[in-house]
Simulated assay, not measured.
Amino acid sequence: MNAENAAFSGLGPAEVAGAGDLVDCARCRTAESAGLRPHHRLSRLDSMILEAVATGLSSVRIADRLHLSRQAVDYHVKGMQRRFNAVNRVELVSKACVTGVLDVGMWPPKVPCCFVLGQRVT
């Protein structure tokens, strides 16, 4: 995570070193054997947006931080709501937590790398 995105976590630049990296956990190392369903896999951008939604940021604040339009953020949120069969942001975050897509053992919540498309688990 760079200093400009540090505001997502409320950390200063000195505390950001290594933050924002994908979480590598035991769940990630066993993801293939667990048979993850494809609709639970997110793009890197979707994972960043989901993490921001989980911290309570509005679409405007997320768009500003990620250099996107508000409409683009809303488009990605709606797409995730469809994949998780959620009617609103609260239900989206709740279902993401229940299915393990959001690691709630830390603040801010992070998406483990096994749920991000194109990421390899080491």
Rank of each mutant, 00 (worst) to 15 (best):
G20C: 07
V23W: 15
E91G: 02
H40M: 07
T99A: 12
R89S: 08
G18N: 03
A7P: 01
C28E: 07
F8V: 02
D103Y: 14
K110N: 05
P108Q: 07
R82A: 05
M106V: 11
L50D: 02
E4G: 01
A6N: 05
V87S: 13
L66V: 07
V93Q: 05
H76M: 03
R27P: 00
M1E: 08
R27V: 02
Q71S: 13
D64F: 09
P109D: 02
D46W: 04
A17N: 08
A17Y: 12
G10D: 10
A72N: 07
A63I: 02
E51W: 00
V23S: 15
A72T: 09
C97K: 11
Q71V: 08
L11F: 09
T55A: 09
C28W: 04
T122K: 14
G118I: 00
V98F: 08
G100C: 04
L45Q: 15
R70S: 14
H40R: 11
L36H: 03
V116K: 02
D24Q: 11
S47Q: 04
A34Q: 11
V87P: 00
H40F: 12
V116G: 01
V90F: 09
A31C: 06
R82C: 00
A6M: 03
L66E: 14
L68M: 15
R37Q: 12
T122I: 07
A34W: 02
R83H: 10
P13F: 07
R83W: 02
C25N: 15
G35Y: 01
P109R: 12
L22Q: 07
V90H: 12
A7W: 14
S58C: 02
A14C: 08
M1N: 05
R37V: 01
P112K: 08
N5L: 11
L117Q: 13
Q81Y: 01
G105C: 05
V111M: 02
L102I: 02
V116M: 01
T99D: 11
